[in-house]
Structure formats: structure tokens, C-alpha cells
Design a protein around this nucleic acid. Structure first.
Length: 588
RNA sequence: GCGGGAGUAGUUCAGCUGGUUAGAACGCUGCCCUGUCACGGCAGAGGCCGCGGGUUCGAAUCCCGUCUCUCGCGCCA
């Protein structure tokens, strides 16, 4: 291969017996037997055991080598005796008898061990990320990430999507998350913004006639982190298509996602839901799952039982219903014989969550039990249509609160009873998102998602429908309860855009000031177009089966949006600030 | 900004309702060891118990404040 190595540390086997070879890599482990030393040499590809004994002239010097030092080893490939073959290693049938070695780089005492998979605190792992990245788990996660991204590129290219790069230094957009800002030296007092997504650029590329766009796009949002949301930056498979309706977008991306998941899943037993993926209207998702990102691996379903309780003798619910509340219920199979403590525990959990409680009825051997049952008559009880050993849990509240809390109950019971089918990826589309919503603080109408989405019914709907009833051609793709992406058919008609923004309280002048580039482009012949942007990091996270997004990013920031290794953000010299015309103020 | 959890050796952790000299494992140093693969054995070094204050005869332990990490809420068109 070259002067440093003739083989990788994964390559040698009994076919190479007798060959003189050269390996380079890190010292994974040393086993010093006094007059015999074993060293496992590790590189990106694997591990090979090397051995040296006390008769060798370099033996004493060799015995001082520390873990994670970098060695070049030359020697002969020899077979291991039957008893000493290591079946856990690809190279376990052979070892390298060291003839000569060169210490290419010495390692100090390690702040965290590389050759073990035990969990370590994140602070130390982030500070010494290069060591953490040498460790098995992270190393293979990053290799998986590469595989996924290169698969995506291949599949998008095959489907005639064209890869673009769009500006990183661009302008701030008034809607959405906080922007990261970059001061301009030439235009003092003005700022670039890092793109939250290449939204406008990809639309402009459609207007420019490129037909199908994609990009593995970096997105920057100054928002607080979550386990599945890295602060600062993340990557999307951003794509957009011309002359398409919503179904065309779905048909284009479904096979890509299916294949990427099916080809990169951890083991063969995992099932990926086949396309076409389930389409669930937003309202139905809220009714049946209590969330707009349902985990379809969870078999529990929420139903409405308001009619049964309306006017019933169970006054707690019936009086609430008169005030406008609804009753949601979740039937749980095979839970009717659970001990009283099971139901009590859930009830006290519900109280901790701020609910009044969690009422239930259980049905075993033709008997209805539980605190609610005695308040209902036979007919009412039968209308729940319970099977033997079923129980049903009830949530009574105002519609939105009841939906959201039912969603939590659905998740909680699923966890308690271990109902989740862990061996599957269940995709669905959430469609028909409302175009507008009420801001609960200001009571004003605002866009509920992307303001550039096309309202269903177009101008006609904007003119003649209650804004809160208008749906948008706006959709999310959800997998296992994780929101992978948001997308839309865009509004490509300026007159509809003026009207849509007018409803949300933006004047024509506002719109022209904020989105002049975009609006201008729409006036010179814009094709109908739409797309979406699945999150790459979240896809890798699902496929690597990691609960935390930082485990699939090579150099993530911590929760406080700091890079502990590079020490970012950092203070800037006074001279540099002056050059930019920036003066710092002391907020304290 | 708010709430939960955590902070003890280089690292991961234990340390009870307050009570002698704060422990273990891994790592490190020295010695012994020719078939291990998380090698083994013996000995040793290593601690502002996050920081500040308080209660107490006595605080790693209880109380208050503060900082840091993490999970969640807010936020995320």
C-alpha cells in the first residue's frame, strides 16, 4: 500500500501466513506478560493482535508504550494455535510477530478510555471529542451517517434531482426561529443571517427552471436544545420539485426514505412500513393520537366518548361537558385484571401531570369495575363495546387540553405495559395542517406553519372561509413519533400571497420589504412547486437507535450551545469589534 | 426564562437517619509474570466531597445561595 502500511488492521487472515507486512494504527490494548507482550493494533477498519517476546532486542523499550499511542509495526503473519484463536476478531486466526516498530506518536494518560464502551459523562466526551470518536459506538455511528448520506445522494441523483449549494451568509427572515447573525464589516450596523433553511433559495431555483432541486443542507437556528435537537446547526435533505401536487412530492420521496431505512437498519428483523405511507389529517392525528407526531408503533388509539357521558349520572364529567368539555377514552386490551395499584399509580401520575385524575373502567367476566362504573347504567356501560379483560381510561377537559393529555396518557400506558413494537419503523404523513391559528397571548391570527404554503382552495378560500378553517397544502413526515420533516406545496401566485399575509396582519408594504426577492421572482413566471426537507441527523439517530442526536454528530455543541473542544463561542479582540463598528454593552 | 435529576481521586461511581484516617473499579507508578485478548498477582501515589455561606461539639451527608452538566417546558414560520 505505502510506507506506513501494506494492509489495514482488518485485512489479515490465514491466507497471509508467512507474509511480511506493515500495519499502522493505535494501541488499543496492551497485555504485558513480563517476557511476552500482546498489543492490539487498531485502525478505522479493525484490530490485529501483534506480539513480541523477551528475546527481541527492542522488547524493553516496547514495554513502555502507552495506550492510544500510534505505532507502525512490521513483522510476519503467523498462525495462532487452536486454543488461542479469537473468534470475536476477523483477524483472530492470526497474529503479527513484531520484527520492528516505530513509535509515530506517543499518547499521554487518557482522560477517558478508548478501548471500552462504558458510558462516560458528556462534558469530558465533548471536550475530548477526538478520543470519543475513536471509540466503537461513535466511530460506527459516524460511519453509518456517511453511508446514509451517500445513499441519499445516489438515490436523489438517480431520480434526476440536481444538487445545489446555496448561500450561508444571507438575510434574516422575520418569521420563524431566532437567526444567527453575522456582522457586516463593509456595511456597518448591518448583519447577515445564517439560513434557518434554504427555503427561499430552493423556490428561486424552481422559478429558475431547474425542475428538481436537492441539497444536504446545513440549517442554523438559535433555539434551545432537546435530546433530538442539536443547538446551532443541523442538516436536512432539502428537496423541491416543479409542476407537482402534494401526492407527487409524496411519491417522489417515499421510496427514497423507505430504501434508506431498509438498507441501513441495524438488523434484518426490523420492518420498515411500506410505501405509500399512511396519510393522517392533522385533525385526525390530534383526535386519535393526541399529537401531530404520532408513534404508530404504539397500538393504543384515542376515541371520543362525550356522547355517552353527556347527561349521564357521572356528574363530574356531565357537568364539565355542559361547560364545553369533551371526554376522550383509551381502550387497553388485556389490562382489566391488573391490580388496583396499577390504576392508582396511573392516577397519581396524571395528577402530577396537572390533570384532575385518570378515571377508568375495567371489564372482566361480565363485571364493570372502577370508580366510574357505578355511576353509569347498563346501556351506557355496554356502549363502550369492551371485550373481556379490557379496561378503558378517560380524560375529560376542553378539546385541545383533552387531546394533548390523551396523547400523554397513550404514551404513558404504552410504556407501562411495554406495548411498543421496537422492531419497526412506522412512517406516516400528517396532512391538512391549518393555515392559520390564534395566538393565545395576543388573540391575533397568525400563520401556523410556513407562510409560503399554498392554502387549500387558494384565493377562493382566503376570501370566503373563516381563516381558522382554511387548510394548507402543508405536511409533515413522521417516523416512530419523530418529526422528520415539514414540507408544503408553495404559494406561487403573488396575489394569493398578498391576501394570505394580509390575513396574518402583514400589509402589502411589509411583505414587499421583507420578501422582495421572492415576490419579485413570482411575478416573472413561477411554476407550481413544492417539496420537503427530512432531517438527516434524526434519520441517522433512528437508524443508529440512539436516543440523543449528539451521538450521531461528529462535533456537536453541548446544551448551552458551546463547543467545549474548540471553546466556542469566544470573546473577540477589541480591534476586531471596532473594525465591525460593534460596541458591547454590559447587560448587568 | 421555568421545573426535575446530577456534581466525591485522572475517569466511572459507592458513601445510610450528621460521628474515628472519605472507599471501590478502571487508569497511573514500581515490582513479578511466555499465550493473553477487559491477561493475572503484589505494592504505591493520587481528594478544596463544584463554589460561598449557615445550623451543629462535629457536615461529603442537613439548610440557604450560587455555578456547571443533563432531561423536560417555554421556544422551534
Amino acid at each position: 500500500m505505502n510506507n506506513y502500511r501494506s494492509h489495514y488492521c482488518s485485512q489479515l487472515n490465514s491466507d497471509n501466513l508467512g507474509e511480511n507486512i506493515t500495519l499502522s494504527g493505535w494501541v488499543d490494548t496492551i497485555r504485558d506478560h513480563g517476557n511476552l507482550i500482546f498489543v492490539d493494533l487498531r485502525d478505522n477498519y479493525g484490530v490485529t493482535q501483534c506480539v513480541i517476546d523477551g528475546t527481541h532486542k527492542l522488547f524493553r523499550e516496547f514495554s513502555k508504550i502507552s495506550n492510544e499511542s500510534v505505532l507502525k509495526v512490521t513483522g510476519q503473519v503467523v498462525s495462532r494455535s487452536n486454543e488461542t484463536i479469537n473468534k470475536n476478531l476477523n483477524t483472530g486466526e492470526i497474529e503479527v510477530k513484531i520484527d520492528n516498530y516505530e513509535l509515530l506518536s506517543k499518547s499521554d494518560v487518557l482522560p477517558l478510555p478508548v478501548n471500552s464502551d462504558i458510558e462516560y459523562g458528556e462534558e469530558i466526551r465533548l471536550k475530548y471529542r477526538f478520543l470519543d470518536l475513536r471509540r466503537n459506538k461513535l466511530h460506527s455511528n459516524i460511519l453509518l451517517r456517511n453511508k446514509i448520506i451517500s445513499d441519499i445522494r445516489k438515490k436523489m441523483n438517480e431520480r434526476d434531482f440536481i444538487e445545489f449549494q446555496t448561500p450561508i451568509l444571507t438575510s434574516s427572515s422575520p418569521e420563524g426561529a431566532r437567526d444567527y447573525l453575522v456582522p457586516s464589516r463593509i456595511h456597518q450596523g448591518k448583519f447577515y443571517a445564517l439560513p434557518q433553511a434554504p427555503q427561499q433559495f430552493k423556490q428561486l431555483l424552481m422559478i429558475a427552471g431547474f425542475d428538481k432541486y436537492y441539497q444536504i443542507a446545513p440549517c442554523f437556528r438559535d433555539e434551545d436544545s432537546r435530546a433530538d435537537r442539536s443547538p446551532g446547526e443541523f442538516y436536512q435533505l432539502d428537496f423541491e420539485m416543479s409542476f407537482v401536487s402534494q401526492e407527487d412530492v409524496f411519491n417522489a420521496i417515499e421510496p427514497v426514505l423507505f430504501e434508506v431505512f431498509d438498507e441501513n437498519k441495524k438488523n434484518k428483523d426490523i420492518k420498515v412500513s411500506p410505501y405509500p405511507f399512511k396519510r393522517i389529517p392533522y385533525n385526525e392525528a390530534m383526535e386519535r393520537y393526541g399529537t401531530d407526531k404520532p408513534d404508530l408503533r404504539n397500538p393504543l388509539i384515542i376515541d371520543d366518548y362525550t356522547d355517552i357521558f353527556k347527561g349521564s349520572n357521572f356528574k363530574i364529567f356531565s357537568s364539565q361537558i355542559e361547560k364545553g368539555s369533551v371526554v376522550k377514552g383509551i381502550i387497553v386490551k388485556q389490562s382489566g385484571e391488573k391490580p388496583r395499584s396499577f390504576f392508582d399509580k396511573l392516577n397519581s401520575w396524571a395528577r402530577d401531570e396537572g390533570a384532575a385524575g385518570l378515571g377508568y373502567i375495567s371489564f372482566t367476566e361480565e363485571n364493570f369495575k372502577g370508580p366510574i362504573a357505578k355511576n353509569l347504567n347498563d346501556e351506557e356501560l355496554k356502549s363502550f363495546k369492551l371485550d373481556d379483560k379490557d379496561s378503558i381510561f378517560f380524560i375529560c377537559d376542553k378539546l385541545k387540553e383533552a387531546q394533548l393529555f390523551s396523547g400523554k396518557v397513550r404514551e404513558k400506558i404504552c410504556n407501562e405495559l411495554n406495548l411498543l413494537n421496537k422492531n419497526s419503523f412506522e412512517f406516516c404523513w400528517i396532512v391538512d395542517f391549518p393555515m392559520y391559528e390564534i395566538d393565545e397571548k395576543t388573540n391575533k391570527i397568525q400563520f401556523s406553519h410556513n407562510p409560503f404554503s399554498m392554502p387549500q382552495g387558494e384565493m377562493e378560500a382566503l376570501k370566503n372561509t373563516d381563516p381558522l378553517d382554511i387548510k394548507a397544502y402543508q405536511y409533515d413526515i413522521v417516523c416512530n413519533g419523530v418529526e422528520l420533516s415539514s414540507g408544503a406545496i408553495r404559494n406561487h401566485k403573488p396575489e394569493i400571497m398578498y391576501r394570505a399575509f394580509d390575513i396574518a396582519g402583514y400589509s402589502k408594504e411589509d411583505l414587499e420589504e421583507k420578501f422582495s426577492g421572492m415576490l419579485n421572482a413570482l411575478k416573472f413566471g413561477a411554476p407550481p412547486h413544492g417539496g420537503s426537507a427530512p432531517g438527516i441527523d434524526r434519520i441517522v439517530m433512528l437508524l443508529a437507535d440512539e436516543p440523543n442526536i449528539r451521538e450521531v454528530i461528529a462535533f456537536p455543541m453541548n446544551q448551552q450551545a458551546m463547543d467545549l473542544m474548540m471553546d466556542a463561542p469566544a470573546s473577540i479582540d477589541k480591534e476586531r469589534l471596532e473594525e465591525l463598528g460593534i460596541k458591547l454593552i454590559d447587560k448587568n
